[in-house]
């Protein structure tokens, strides 16, 4: 019997645990989804910022004599029905998608956090606010946007407002849920018992809990806002047709889809890749910020 006890210390371990690399590189290797998603998104952002440098033509200049040409050395992605350079339009289109996606994500976060905190903290306000949110949730964002466009003019700001209104309930419910469960935590009760003022409790003990899930939710909202923007442009209820947005380019190529598929193809690929990048980043962040994973260390 002593032999086995002693041997236990001398036998090699059943696992070989590779040491995690530390530093930035270690983080990037350890979180491939954040690395890939964030990297791809960074490229798209860079592309949008540097659009004037990258574009080979003026995205707005018409050239009717060059209508719907196949890709060539001069026009890398070909030209559309009005002879505009699709490559340059796609590059500039990234600006629209990113602006809409990021604006909607930020706006829903700010408004959702505010309403969610009130609903989670004031019992009497909770019932009213949540019924309003239920009502908003019942309206499809596309219908809301179409109605808004019908009342005003098609513009990017209107697209942002329409999508934001439709997405606020999602963020609001999330924040409210986090606040309600955080309030039950013994450490929040302990803070009450030690005489901490309510606004300090919210700021110090409750708000930090909402941040991680909010960031994750915001990335998903950003991705879906970009898709909704493209759909709205595609059906003609979004950004004005002169503005180069991926949805607009696709809308223009719709009629020629069977004979000139490249007009739809290139903006579609860019939209898909960007949405995929944002979603990958969101998934990576969710796993990284998951409190259960965090407490394991």
């Amino acid at each position: 019997m002593p032999a086995t006890t002693l041997a236990a210390t001398e036998r090699p371990d059943l696992f070989v645990v590779r040491r995690r690399r530390s530093g930035v590189l270690g983080f990037l290797i350890g979180n491939p989804r954040i690395t890939i998603g964030g990297g791809m998104l960074a490229l798209v952002v860079l592309m949008a910022i540097c659009a004037p440098l990258l574009a080979t033509h003026d995205p707005l200049s018409l050239a009717p004599w060059l209508r719907a040409r196949f890709p060539s050395a001069e026009h890398w992605f070909g030209t559309d029905m009005l002879g505009r350079d699709i490559y340059s339009r796609v590059i500039y289109g990234a600006r629209v998608s990113l602006t809409v996606g990021i604006s909607v994500a930020v706006l829903t976060s700010v408004v959702g956090l505010f309403i969610g905190l009130i609903a989670g903290y004031l019992r009497w306000a909770d019932g009213i606010l949540m019924r309003v949110m239920d009502g908003l949730m019942a309206i499809p964002s596309i219908l809301l946007a179409v109605a808004l466009m019908a009342l005003t003019r098609g513009s990017m700001v209107n697209v942002i407002i329409a999508v934001t209104i439709a997405d606020i309930p999602r963020m609001c419910r999330l924040v409210r849920g986090v606040v309600l469960s955080a309030r039950e935590q013994p450490y929040v009760e302990a803070a009450v018992a030690t005489g901490t003022r309510t606004h300090v409790i919210i700021r110090r003990h409750i708000l930090p809990n909402t941040l991680a899930p909010m960031i994750v939710q915001a990335t998903y909202i950003c991705a879906s806002a970009m898709i909704v923007e493209a759909i709205l442009s595609f059906i003609g209820a979004g950004t004005p047709p002169t503005t180069p947005s991926w949805g607009n380019i696709m809308a223009e190529g719709r009629a020629l889809w069977q004979i000139k598929p490249f007009i739809v193809f290139f903006p579609a690929v860019f939209l898909s890749v960007t949405v995929l990048a944002v979603n990958l980043l969101g998934d990576g962040l969710r796993d990284l910020l998951d409190p259960r994973a965090a407490t394991r260390t």
Partner: peptide
């Protein structure tokens, strides 16, 4: 309180 884990803000 009973549970020293949840009584402290992590």
């Amino acid at each position: 309180f009973q549970d020293p884990y949840s009584s402290l803000n992590p």
